[in-house]
């Protein structure tokens, strides 16, 4: 058994974190059990990150964490110490981004509840990892939508990824 190092931090029910959210540095002490989605929504009041299932299935809570799309409902806030997060509120500083605009132009949303999750997945992944029409479907397969049947969403992605349907 090695001796405890000076850095040893005992388990605690409250955890200090430093995290960058939408470009702003945030220092907070979070309950150990607080879900990241709840931290974003209830503490930072970034309520655009929606909670649809709290079990990592529906994708509504997807955020960009250090360049990857992740589900914030199955992460603890305590786990993001030192990370950089973008939520839907941070997608565009002025007006709509091309992706958001494409959703609007192509009727890519109805109730809008799942929409932030789709936007965060699509704004985080590299389109080249998802070639072709099937790639578009694969890219969004981890986000469920119950209103649109995906038609408008697919068309929005085709538009913004410059990938005509019958090409």
């Amino acid at each position: 058994m090695t001796a405890p190092t000076a850095r040893r931090v005992e388990p605690s029910v409250e955890v200090p974190i430093s995290v960058t959210v939408n470009g702003e540095a945030v220092e907070a002490v979070v309950p150990a059990r607080q879900l990241l989605a709840d931290f974003l929504r209830e503490e930072l009041r970034l309520t655009g990150t929606h909670v649809g299932c709290e079990q990592g299935i529906c994708g509504a809570c997807t955020i960009n964490l250090d360049g990857e799309p992740v589900r914030s409902c199955i992460m603890l806030a305590a786990q993001v110490d030192g990370s950089v997060i973008t939520t839907v509120e941070g997608l565009s500083s002025e007006g709509l981004s091309p992706l958001q605009q494409a959703f609007k132009d192509n009727h890519g949303l109805q109730c809008g509840f799942c929409t932030p999750g789709f936007l965060m997945t699509l704004s985080t992944v590299d389109p080249e990892d998802y070639p072709g029409e099937e790639g578009i479907r694969e890219a969004i397969s981890g986000n469920l939508c119950r209103c649109t049947g995906y038609g408008g969403i697919l068309q929005a992605v085709r538009t913004v990824w410059n990938r005509p349907k019958d090409a």
């Binding site: 040893r8 029910v13 150990a32 059990r33 879900l35 709840d38 079990q55 603890l76 786990q79």
Partner: peptide
């Protein structure tokens, strides 16, 4: 669907 209480550490 919230986790029960626990203590956390990140060695």
């Amino acid at each position: 669907m919230k986790p029960p209480p626990f203590a956390y550490c990140r060695p």
